[in-house]
């Protein structure tokens, strides 16, 4: 999902672990107690969560770029207002998540630095371009739809601040998906050219969206510990299947065709079977060689540099006000 790039071996040296403390911790997690910032926790739990929440936050922030791309070209004032509100929400989600990650002891500046230096990852999906207005519909319907599928179980994550941030995010996210699907409906009921634009967008996005759930369970390195710690409640493949089962009927309603000849409903299992996902493409995009990786990083770095004056001005203003406040009693004498 937004943290699919976690599927790498942790290069940090193995933390010292205390079997007794770890057992006490696991007993709390098993009892569905929430873990709070000042509670004792295994170093590996802290590290995994910090990476996961930071990646999630980075994804929200980088995710503003492909959609922001269309704000000035939205086809109506209504669509423009909705898209602006949505992009603003993504910024807010990033802020909630950075705050949640900070409770684990890493500062927002450090996380930001890791993103800008390329040391930290964000979701592979935001390395694909939004070429037409239909892509904005698809991003809302499918990208946010997939995100919701992943984020709802995260509301029950064992780490309190992350779980609480997710509750807030999920509430806001449902507007995102609905506005995206509404765009799709408008296009699919429109002219043949609009319908074709919608179909082409689905063709381009379907497979990358399925990759959002991360590698198949058999290749997933951290599923076992993440499930044991109740950070994850469902495996990648389980979530992917849930998403496909929920989404295919929505696509049929739009009278669109999914670009997967193997997509068939299995009456026995009551699930949709699907074709093979191209995991080499996934690995390539996560490693930095997707269609837009370089552009996104360039935009993020430029934004950070261009906004430096705002940070400096805020600091200067705060200093000036402090000095004035300090000088005030003297002036009054």
């Amino acid at each position: 999902m937004y943290t699919q790039a976690l599927n790498t071996q942790d290069s940090a040296p193995a933390a010292k672990s205390d079997p007794q403390a770890d057992a006490r911790f696991q007993a709390r997690v098993d009892a569905e107690e929430k873990i709070e910032p000042n509670d004792a926790m295994p170093e590996a739990y802290r590290r995994t969560l910090t990476r996961q929440i930071a990646q999630h936050a980075h994804s929200e922030i980088v995710g503003m770029l492909p959609e922001g791309n269309w704000i000035t070209r939205a086809p109506s004032l209504k669509r423009k207002a909705a898209l602006l509100a949505k992009v603003q929400d993504e910024g807010g989600h990033g802020a909630y998540l950075y705050a949640a990650a900070e409770t684990l002891g890493t500062s927002r500046e450090q996380m930001e630095e890791q993103l800008l230096s390329g040391a930290a990852k964000y979701s592979s999906i935001f390395n694909y371009p939004t070429l037409t207005w239909a892509d904005i519909g698809i991003v809302g319907w499918l990208v946010d739809g997939a995100a919701i599928m992943n984020q709802i179980p995260l509301c029950r994550c064992s780490y309190g601040p992350y779980a609480r941030a997710m509750v807030r995010i999920c509430k806001e996210e449902s507007f995102h998906q609905r506005q995206g699907y509404e765009i799709m409906i408008a296009l699919c009921k429109g002219t043949p050219a609009q319908k074709q634009m919608a179909q082409e967008a689905l063709n381009r996005w379907w497979w990358p969206v399925l990759m959002m759930f991360g590698p198949p369970d058999k290749d997933s390195l951290h599923t076992e510990s993440a499930m044991r710690w109740k950070i994850k409640r469902f495996t990648n493949d389980e979530l992917r299947q849930k998403f496909i089962d929920a989404t295919v009927p929505q696509g049929q309603f739009l009278d669109l065709t999914f670009p997967d000849p193997a997509l068939k409903f299995d009456a026995g299992t009551q699930h949709w079977n699907y074709g093979d996902i191209d995991w080499t493409e996934f690995k390539r995009v996560v490693a930095g060689d997707g269609p837009c990786n370089r552009q996104r990083m360039k935009q993020m770095r430029a934004k950070h540099a261009d906004n430096a004056w705002v940070r400096e001005a805020a600091n200067a203003y705060a200093r000036k006000r402090q000095q004035r406040a300090a000088a005030m009693p003297i002036a009054a004498e």
Partner: peptide, 19 residues
């Protein structure tokens, strides 16, 4: 409900409102 970063109380209030 959560936290924000800001240089002073006034800006913290604005950031909290927006966030």
């Amino acid at each position: 409900v959560g936290s924000v970063h800001a240089v002073d109380a006034t800006m913290a209030l604005h950031a909290a409102r927006d966030t």
